[in-house]
Design a protein around this nucleic acid. Structure first.
Lengths: 202, 202
DNA sequence: CATGGTAAGCGTACGCTGTAAACATAGATT
DNA sequence: AATCTATGTTTACAGCGTACGCTTACCATG
């Protein structure tokens, strides 16, 4: 591994281990972003991280475990992004929705990673579940506030999922190349969210 | 290959070729359904189809080509399902939406196949694009009718995508395991589509 | 200080994968 | 009868995830 050429074996503190895991996740994410899903293999990861093919297995039991960690990281980045918006002074509903869409547009590889349909059994990874829950919580926060403020009517949890599903649906259709050039994405997003807001008004 | 033990070589008519392709797609779909994405390989396909591993390459240039054909089949099945509903006497908006959801629930493997985010460049497969367009057309038909009947207001194409994205968003969240036990899917679906209908009413 | 246990990392190897290439076969065409 | 050609098989290869065993060097104990 050799993070600073010092300490070649044994005695890795917990922080060290976490730092190495973090670094491996970073490299894995970069590989995903740069070369797509197919450009990522444990061997490619090892090459890029400058270690032997089996080294990563000291930190992640399987490739799937590593990918779960990478997804958890992505969720945390998404949650951070959303939080940084809602903490600002402008907290209109649209700002959060736009921030969510922007994250997906600017980090398509990570968004794919988070929501790809072919990932098995996320429940086995508490870290992942937790990160996903936090992201969802951020998404739902503004919906909750609007219900409490009497702007929207209904169960805040139900409404949260409804808004999320709608935005997410548009994004995945776009990422899967199922949306045409016209009507453009912005139009669809505005129409969908506007209709939802009107239809759910208190 | 030997589909009925007759004709071992040469002289496969165009229909024959198409029949073999069809059979390979069927076996591939079954493998997907039964053993998940990982249970499918060209070798597994060959074993299940009773031919040598390379035989399928006479009918599909690459694995990706074969998968594109499998997806096109799935789209056609979806379109057939939707058409069979709208042709009946009951053609309330909900019937189509419910038929769509039911297809996804009863054929999760095929739905995944159609909409997985990691499929590259569908535009290269005209057959696929065509099948996808037909399915979308079926989805949009009832929206168009409602706009024409003056029930909904707006650009029918925009509205079609909006309804589609909303239902699709709910489905992929469910397939990706991102939805909780409560509120249940039916509640979310009703809330979302009800709100859209209200918000888009003429 | 010597020693043995143990954790870190490496190299090798196995059984998969997709598929390129060479080959065999048997009807159709000449 | 000889040749051509579409079909399918066999063989081969590079790359994959990862199981396994080896070496190395630290640390706790004698």
């Amino acid at each position: 591994m050799s993070e600073t050429a010092v300490r070649k074996t044994r005695a890795r503190s917990a922080e060290d281990r976490e730092a190495v895991r973090e670094r491996l996740c970073q490299v894995a994410t970069r590989l995903f972003v740069e070369h797509g899903e197919m450009g990522f293999s444990m061997r490619a990861l090892a090459t890029d991280a400058g270690c032997s093919p089996m080294a990563a297995y000291r930190y992640f039991e399987t490739k799937e475990d590593l990918l779960a960690a990478v997804r958890a990281r992505a969720y945390r980045r998404l949650a951070d992004t959303l939080e940084s918006v809602s903490d600002g002074e402008r907290r209109k509903a649209r700002d959060i929705g736009e921030a969510y869409v922007r994250f997906a547009e600017q980090n398509p590889a990570e968004y794919r990673l988070m929501f790809d349909l072919s990932q098995p059994d996320d429940a086995r990874y508490p870290e992942l579940s937790e990160a996903a829950a936090r992201a969802r919580w951020c998404m739902n926060k503004y919906v909750r506030e609007m219900v409490e403020a009497g702007v929207l009517a209904g169960d805040p949890e139900v409404l949260g999922y409804v808004f999320w599903a709608t935005i997410h649906g548009l994004i995945v259709l776009k990422l899967a190349g199922r949306l045409p050039a016209t009507p453009d994405f912005e139009t669809l997003r505005r129409t969908a969210l506007g209709a939802l807001m009107r239809g759910l008004r208190a």
